[in-house]
Design a protein around this nucleic acid. Structure first.
Length: 375
DNA sequence: AACCGTTACAACCGCCAGGAT
DNA sequence: CATCCTGGCGGTTGTAACGGT
């Protein structure tokens, strides 16, 4: 009854294999094949269990195993397959000749997973992470709340620390939003093209992971690219211009303060690049989406949004990932008039791009109660 | 040189599916 | 049908190597 113990009885050896043991195993299998793994150790003169022998052979000693570093192509293949198959290491390994499931699994756990996390992707879903980004409304709300409190208590010098903290928090939030947005634009850029977005950087985007990585490094190493003067964020008539205006509104402490003094309802939370809108949408689809969101443009709509589950209020169109007509990245904003607007320009042919490492924005951020409060 | 934290990866463990009896 | 056995799989652990202090 039950399973027989593996190596824990009869003094069978465990742990790392010695060269002598390896030679015995190789020699036996070359002569006789492995046959029954259970019987093999005795026949080969090894004080190991069959399972240990099988693993040593299949993961290490097999002659057709390719050793050494994974190539860019192999890395890309693993990423693509993992996004489809998940942790099906053996299935992934069948597409990588000479690589074992164990090797791929290790490579994933030690390299690729961390790389994805660093790039802002959830390693399991391969989608941009929302944990960081979803805190943006809170950060902005908190920053603005602090600022308003500060202004109400204008003459109290002990508020200086909070003042500094609020401005810093707000600046960080805006930087984060910019970074995420630029990553999004980059990842949804058609493959093998040099786009207006990338022109200022003289980058041709093949839209694979190395490009995204290079782009991220570029952004991280060149903070000026996120400044209000950045060519990336200031292209005229671009889908970025709307968000640029909103960013500049938020990022300038002076203008913010002025606005808040004159109009205490002028906080302007940003919702950038909704998830499935990264898919391609026809103009009629876009109209529908705009209408859907306009429906929330009233206080009643916002209340409704706050009271029902997101699956109920997200437009069916938004969750239909099969839609594909013309590329139109979208910026949704909630304005100080508590209306929600929808801005899309550009179009293009992103749909024709072969599947690359384009992240899909997983969730809208609108369900956050803070949005209601801020708006 | 010693210590410590991190990384990389070989190896093990437990579970499961499927075939044999 | 029930039980057993085997091989395969994915998750986890152990440890050598490495780099920084």
């Amino acid at each position: 009854m039950g399973r027989s113990p593996c190596c824990d009885e009869n003094g069978l050896k465990k742990g790392p294999w010695t060269p002598e043991e390896d030679q015995k195993l190789i020699h036996y299998i070359e002569q006789h094949g492995h046959g029954s793994w259970r019987a093999l150790p005795k026949l080969a003169g090894l004080n190991r269990c069959g399972k240990s022998c099988r693993l040593r052979w299949t993961n290490y000693l097999r002659p057709d195993i390719k050793r050494g570093k994974f190539s860019q192509e192999e890395e890309q293949t693993i990423l693509n397959l993992h996004s489809i198959l998940g942790n099906k290491w053996s299935a992934i390994a069948t597409h990588l000749p000479g690589r074992t499931d164990n090797e791929i699994k290790n490579f994933w756990n030690t390299h690729l997973k961390k790389k994805l996390i660093q790039m802002g992707f959830d390693p399991m879903t391969h989608r941009p992470r929302t944990d960081l980004f979803s805190t943006l409304p809170q950060l902005i709300a908190l920053a603005n709340l602090n600022k308003e409190l500060m202004l109400m208590d204008h003459h109290h010098h002990h508020q200086q620390w909070e003042d500094h903290a609020a401005v810093r928090l707000q600046a960080e939030a805006v930087q984060l939003a910019k970074l995420q947005y630029l990553q999004y634009i980059f990842q949804t850029t058609p493959t093998n093209t040099t786009t207006p977005l990338l022109n200022p950087l003289n980058i041709t985007n093949n839209n694979d992971i190395s490009d995204i990585e290079a782009f991220n490094n570029l952004l991280i190493n060149n903070p000026s690219l996120l400044s209000s003067q950045s060519p990336l964020l200031n292209r005229e008539n671009s889908n970025l211009s709307t968000v640029t205006a909103k960013f500049s509104h938020l990022e300038s402490p002076t203008s913010c303060a002025t606005n808040n003094v004159n109009n205490t309802h002028s906080t302007t939370p940003i919702i950038v690049a909704p998830p499935t809108l990264t898919k391609c949408l026809s103009s009629s689809d876009m109209s529908q989406i705009c209408n859907d969101f306009q429906a929330f443009g009233t206080q009643g709509g916002l209340d409704q949004m706050n009271n029902i589950g997101k699956s109920e209020w997200i437009s069916p169109i938004l969750s239909d990932q099969s839609l594909c007509a013309s590329a139109a990245p979208v910026v949704l904003t909630i304005t100080n008039e508590t209306s929600m607007s929808c801005n899309t320009t550009g179009g293009g042919d992103a749909c024709s791009s072969s599947s690359s490492y384009g992240g899909i924005w997983p969730e809208l951020l609108l369900e956050d109660p803070f949005i209601n409060e801020i708006a």
